[in-house]
Design a protein around this nucleic acid. Structure first.
Lengths: 247, 247
DNA sequence: CATCGCTTACTTACCTGTCAGTAAGTCCTT
DNA sequence: AAGGACTTACTGACAGGTAAGTAAGCGATG
């Protein structure tokens, strides 16, 4: 992801829903918009499983992480996990939703940052992420995997990126004058998300060689400055032809 | 990867070799330092397999892609593939080496670009990559997977990043004055690689929403400009404390 | 006492790696 | 140049694992 702790605005709630198939959960008229009548202890148990699954999928990826692995962490068998979630794919989807909801909850009260504040928030998050390797790894692995054919997390990932881009564009528009063209803001927005994600990968592979927070800050400042200025400076743009190398 | 077509300097040759275990190949006193006497047709066959494997691992990832899948593409059984490579892990390693070698071969003659030229080369590559979705996907999937525990591609990925960073730092040093501090160059270098990779992920998930070449160009220009200037502009840097959200 | 939460017990489906065997070379010797 | 001795390139079958999903049962509990 752009970052394990994005603003996840109101829209975050909307997005995952669209990706979540029927499964066995959202049965219409139930207690609190929740599925089948559920004992209070059960909800807690389900959340334990979700946290364990986030853990496993984060460490090993969705395909490689097994239900048995998840089950073991909460002291039950893999069939028990299946009892709660119906299928592995449904479990993944609920893990994703759960995290999104948690993000929203954590931001509760605080209004969604806009303008300059959004970038401050982003950078604060990056700094926090340096202390949460596991979470960062989870997002990295999952988004990487999501670009494979027919991956169940593709919709989630695409959606998240889309929402984040929109927010950053809005924030940039506040900072930049009205004469800065839309495409420029849009390019800057995806670039900002891109650096955040890309730097995380390098940092995970070699934490000593990459200073996550510093490098991210540097890059975001550079990109925001260029966007506000209307465009970046020189560098002769190469022609489309003459490709060739690389494997 | 930073990009499917990086300069892959001389050092690229050194790195993968160190990671390659014995397998069944390098039998001491043989024809040409090569492993067991190999029929001419065999070398070609091995390369077919390597290309097929690059294909499979690129599309499905290393863990999920199967030997049977690879074998089918070249019209043999999975046992036949194992006959040539000994193990799945060894196959992956040779795929990685093969691609690196191909990159080097394609750059042959052309000296490794330095200074401004390096960035021009990078941008030209990005443009070429827009036409090679499969290759880009392969790098994205593999690097994403590589951050999982004990992944066989971790060494390769880390090495590649490290080499690329070094080259970019060198190029930046040529452009920037001697008064620009090393850490700034280093941060800019990892940030440049980061945007390239991060934008590729977004582009793969939603090619219409992200203009790969344009956004990359914009970001690299912004970052290079900031690095050459010695540092980027404002943006109040947030304090390390007060974290919280995110899932 | 019916439903919930979960286990046990399987089934089905792969997947990697091993092995024996075979057909087609390659090389050496006479 | 023909024969044997050996190698290479595979195939088919299978051992040994692991994984997801299903079905039936059983004890707790609301």
């Amino acid at each position: 992801m752009a970052d394990p702790a994005p603003p996840t605005p109101a829209s975050t709630d909307a997005a995952p829903g669209s990706a979540a198939p029927a499964g066995r959960s959202p049965k219409p008229g139930a207690t609190a918009a929740r599925g089948p009548r559920r004992r209070p202890a059960t909800t807690e148990r389900r959340e334990e499983i979700l946290r364990a699954a986030a853990n496993t999928f984060g460490a090993k990826g969705y395909k490689t992480g097994s239900l048995a692995d998840v089950a073991e962490q909460v002291g039950m068998t893999h069939a028990g996990v299946l009892h709660h979630f119906g299928s592995k794919e449904q479990l993944l989807i609920e893990v994703l939703e759960y995290r999104d909801k948690e993000d929203v909850r954590d931001l509760e009260g605080q209004k969604i940052p806009s303008g300059l504040e959004l970038f401050v928030h982003l950078l604060r998050t990056v700094r926090a992420n340096e202390q949460r390797r596991g979470v960062v790894q989870g997002y990295t692995v999952l988004t990487g995997e999501s670009v494979t054919e027919g991956h169940p997390a593709a919709a989630w990932a695409g959606n998240r990126f889309s929402i984040l881009r929109g927010e950053i564009v809005d924030a940039l528009r506040e900072l930049a004058g009205p004469d800065v063209p839309e495409p420029t803001l849009s390019q800057a927005a995806s670039a900002i998300i891109g650096v955040m994600d890309g730097l995380q990968v390098q940092w995970l592979l070699d934490p000593d060689a990459v200073h996550l927070a510093e490098a991210t800050t540097f890059a975001i400042e550079a990109i925001v400055a260029a966007a506000v200025a209307g465009a970046a400076a020189p560098l002769p743009v190469p022609p489309p032809g003459a490709a060739g190398q690389v494997g």
